[in-house]
Design a protein around this nucleic acid. Sequence first.
DNA 1: AGGTATATAGTCGTCTTCGACTAGTTCATA
DNA 2: TATGAACTAGTCGAAGACGACTATATACCT
Lengths: 214, 214
Amino acid sequence: MASKRKVSNPLALAVMALLYERPMHPYEMVTLMRERGKHESVRLRYSSLYSVVSALEREGLIVARETVRDGRRPERTIYGITGAGREEFLTWLRELLREPVKEYTQFAAGLSFLPGLPPEEAVALLEERVRRLEEETGEMRSRLDSAAEQFNLPRLFLVESEHELMLREAELGWVRVLVEEIEAGELGSLSEWRSLHSERGQMSAAGGGEEKDV
Amino acid sequence: MASKRKVSNPLALAVMALLYERPMHPYEMVTLMRERGKHESVRLRYSSLYSVVSALEREGLIVARETVRDGRRPERTIYGITGAGREEFLTWLRELLREPVKEYTQFAAGLSFLPGLPPEEAVALLEERVRRLEEETGEMRSRLDSAAEQFNLPRLFLVESEHELMLREAELGWVRVLVEEIEAGELGSLSEWRSLHSERGQMSAAGGGEEKDV
DNA sequence: AGGTATATAGTCGTCTTCGACTAGTTCATA
DNA sequence: TATGAACTAGTCGAAGACGACTATATACCT
């Protein structure tokens, strides 16, 4: 399973989902994705969109139906989904829901090199992160609540936003505890940690012990 | 802040971190990253590594020190970090720890199109995900415990693995609840949801209501 | 002696992805 | 009525990332 897809950008999934509903041209896809908040969960960039659309067409998952011209605007090509496209959409979607995949986050990369900073600085930075996460999650939660009630949209259509909020809140709780644990010396002796930075800013071991292989 | 870095692949951060310790050649970086488990938190690919190293050299963040040849093996170039490289490493690391950044996950993309499947199938897929997550988190936890005690490595050097495990466990709990909520009709009426799929497999609204903008 | 699996140490070409740019249209406003 | 912002609808070139491939050395097995 999880064999290589010919068009692997998740934006392609969104394109197929939209064309599953009805034929439309790329710019309309952008508009609809924005209206529905899908650009919060699927990275949307014009330049990628047009490449993705070409790739999908090349692979026979969508087809150009007609090109229309509106006044002197550039002409717009209207695409529709094919049978193969419908199948691919469903297969892909099932796979995404069924199979957890490893993601590499920026924060994980940062944490990997935490010993690269002295403990006091690490604590200060993480405390700043806590503040920013508090603000961010607060805003997410209120936007979520107001979106739900204003349009009385079933939660079904907001589930990805709830997921994002959940991840952020989990991170927030974890970082709060992490800060306390660092201060309590529970990650390792603070003096040893500090000593990695003693000689004129040179680290003697940025990555720590030699034989970690988790 | 968070202005564009000239070399933005997180692998570059790892390269600078390693060269902060001492000069070495690219293949040795791979070996060290593997030994220390850094490839779990920073995506490591040979081909990317060599591009990243060239880019860092081009930008003056690292320099080639010497090239040595060992028998008839290809020659290896040994790189060292520059002053600019040290600064860039620290600045970048601070930014990663201080500023939360939005990440787009595969699962979030999948969730966005959840209404594209009938509720019974969605539940089945998510239950399968729960099983896989249980297995995965179980393995992660035992590897983490054994790594800590076998080498009695301070937690400081495992913090990114703890972070990853925390995220997975949070997801697991959330998906379990989600399944129950779907079954209880708390995301929206199951019959309405089903009706999106009634006409010979055609969806009438893959993305749901028209005016969501969370 | 021969075969093969694994570790070493990369190169190359292709496909993807992105940021920057173009260019016409509509609308408010001074 | 000129002017500048915001919206519409993309194109293009360059850089980035990845998979597939190459080639030697060494250890192990039979």
